[in-house]
């Protein structure tokens, strides 16, 4: 079966203080359609960088490797084209947009991808009807649509707003960058249910998390461990449990001996 996403030997660096800092050192990862994969790993291992690079953030410079998404060269595309093709990144720290009305923003986004996908744009009434329905399932306050994007939102509200965007944009591949961090159990369940609702043979996800808790609600097909800019270990849900109990250091020690 062909892969939805195929990352091969991806290297990327960032320029910080006029120095190149290598962050991705040969990442390879394949995700077939319909599967949810989890990436775990200690802080600074390059998980967030990987998600930004996939979404098209140009703060990172890609030096080698390739990424195919739905059979196309992802790295040659602009961020907006990636979104239209069905890639969605739920940000670890959703950006505040003062003065930008949330409903207006959401409709602009939905219609931008619909336009690029050759679908008819939604008028204000149709859009609001759809948005309100999703808001209800996410237990969000209805006034979130009237506020400025993420401004003054609590941590939980911001994450729900990400799930709202994800649901409305109908992606075939979502990257959730620590979407569970800082959430209480109820919010965690809402977020996980939001993802589960999208699960189908046509939807895949890459979930970056530190916590095994999320995986109780969001059972993954594969678990990968990332360290020092590489995927060093892959396994099933058991691997996540093992990390939760024994810690990265122990699990990685085992991995490095295996690799040798």
């Amino acid at each position: 079966m062909s892969q939805l996403l195929e990352i091969v030997d991806l290297h990327a660096h960032v320029i910080a203080d006029e120095q190149e800092k290598q962050i991705l050192r040969g990442v390879s990862l394949s995700i077939p359609p319909g599967e949810v994969h989890v990436v775990m790993g200690p802080n600074g291992s390059g998980k967030s960088t990987l998600s930004y690079v996939l979404a098209g953030c140009d703060a990172y410079k890609i030096t080698s490797g390739r990424v195919m998404f739905r059979g196309q060269n992802l790295l040659a595309m602009k961020p907006e084209e990636r979104a239209a093709l069905g890639l969605f990144l739920a940000f670890q720290n959703p950006v505040e947009l003062p003065g930008v009305n949330n409903a207006h923003f959401l409709r602009m986004a939905v219609n931008a991808v619909r336009r690029q996908r050759g679908q008819e744009e939604l008028d204000a009434v149709a859009f609001l009807k759809q948005a309100r329905k999703v808001i209800e399932t996410l237990s969000m306050a209805p006034d979130m649509l009237k506020r400025a994007v993420n401004v003054g939102f609590s941590g939980g509200e911001k994450k729900r707003n990400e799930v709202l965007q994800m649901t409305l944009l109908e992606p075939c591949f979502a990257i959730l960058d620590e979407t569970d961090s800082g959430l209480d159990v109820d919010a965690l369940r809402v977020v996980a249910e939001g993802v589960n609702r999208l699960r189908s043979a046509e939807f895949s996800a890459l979930v970056i998390t530190h916590h095994q808790k999320l995986l109780e609600y969001l059972v993954p097909d594969r678990v990968h461990v990332m360290a020092n800019g590489q995927m060093i270990l892959s396994g099933g849900i058991d691997l996540a449990r093992q990390i939760d109990q024994e810690g990265y250091v122990h699990v990685m020690k085992g991995a490095s001996t295996c690799l040798k």
């Binding site: 953030c57 907006e80 979104a83 930008v100 923003f105």
Partner: peptide, 27 residues
């Protein structure tokens, strides 16, 4: 960061710029 956030939601670059400028002006 704001530009990238908007573009990652499918909004083309020039449209994203306009959204941010209009917001600045509106405020």
């Amino acid at each position: 960061d704001q530009l990238f956030y908007l573009r990652s939601r499918g909004i083309p670059e020039d449209e994203a710029q306009n959204i941010l400028i209009e917001a600045f002006l509106k405020e």
